[in-house]
Simulated scan of single mutants.
Amino acid sequence: MIGVRRNRNKDSPYTAKTPLTRVELHVHLDGSLRHETIYELALKKGLRLPGSGSFQDLKNYLVVKTPENLGTFLSRFDIILASIESDLKALERSAYEAVEDAANAGVIYFEARFCPHILIPLEVRSEADDEARTKWVYDVTDALIKGLIRGQADFKSKGNLIATSIRGLPQHWYEDTLTLVADSSFHGGRIVGVDIAALPDTHDEKSMLEDVAVSFFDRATKLGIRRTIHAGESGGPSQVTGALDLLHAERIGHGYRIVNDPNVYNRIKDEKIHLECCPWSSILTGSIPASDVPHPIVRFFEDDFNVSVNTDDPTITGTRMEDEYRLLSNWGLSEAHYVKATFNAARSCFLPETEKADLIQDISKTYGFTQ
């Protein structure tokens, strides 16, 4: 049973035992780096730092405190990615630390998004030499998986990967990603699905439905690869419909804008499409105005949607799961909703069915529920 994390890392600042009772389905691995790790790596690599170059100035830059737009929110990734790009040791370390941080937040299982191409050397990303580019894609993925496996052994929280393509960028990125995810003999089942997301210069969600993306998700579906799509965050309800009908989405990342179209809203409810909601992120990206009452996630819970609670990018939001729950408590939700969200997430995760059943059983035992 994986009910309680016992810290075995003698150098860790964490010492408390934390019940592992949460499941997180929408978190970006490169958006989960510790500020201390980014600062250490940035200094080592001689990167230009914001402000005076102090750690506090870096942290103040990375953590968004007031609502912005999605493109500005995502701009923080420039320095985050520069600190880990093409550094296999740093990537393994980051994945390992992500597992430790998840465990200390009470997360028993998480699915972390990553785009291998933004982690490889810049000069290789668009190279005509497919062999060199593919080798790097595999190398960075291998480093992340090693970190996840080591972290699981030490902290008893399990993390798998979701390979993410980037809107509006080269077709060969899609091809590489499909080859990577289909190669289960390489990743041993640690890449459990695919997604499409954005960088600051591709955050216009219209490009999500471009022909190359539609072809990619058609092929992924035929290969039996699981699918979750960023939609309905800065794009409208019709984008969610496109994600379902054109990209064969099984889950929707965010999805808040469905409240603007009763037909789409009712479809998501009736078909029990899982919504990976990220409450504080939705405010900071400007997707949902802070003045909107009630927040869509409150409606989702009240209307018995298949919805979960997630952090999205802890490095930038400055939140962990408990912070998200506190925010939801301010909006009138309770622990009963969070428990329900956990089981929604567990049932909607991309684990094989036998592992999913084991996960649900472990959570139930930790809560003291009987089957």
Rank of each mutant, 00 (worst) to 15 (best):
Q371S: 09
A112M: 11
L209K: 00
R267P: 08
A357M: 12
E85S: 02
D362L: 09
P296L: 01
E324I: 15
T21S: 12
I283M: 07
S52R: 14
L161N: 08
V27T: 10
I162S: 01
T319A: 04
S348D: 02
T141Y: 15
S12V: 11
I145T: 12
D139N: 11
L351F: 07
G46C: 12
P116E: 03
S282L: 02
D362C: 06
T370C: 12
V124F: 12
T317R: 03
I196S: 01
D211P: 05
A220F: 04
T366F: 04
H230Y: 06
K17D: 13
G53C: 10
S94G: 14
P294K: 09
P116A: 08
F114V: 11
P294Y: 05
E111R: 02
S184I: 08
Y14N: 14
I229F: 09
E210A: 09
F300Y: 12
A341P: 01
A102I: 06
I118C: 03
I225P: 03
P116C: 02
I225C: 09
E24K: 03
A153F: 07
N7S: 13
L74G: 05
T37S: 14
N9M: 08
S282G: 08
F155L: 05
P296K: 08
L62A: 11
R125L: 09
I273Q: 01
T177G: 05
A346K: 01
K269T: 07
E250Q: 15
T15N: 02
P352S: 10
L178H: 05
V259E: 12
Q361G: 10
D261Y: 06
D201E: 02
L25F: 06
G106K: 04
V107Y: 00
A103Q: 05
P121D: 06
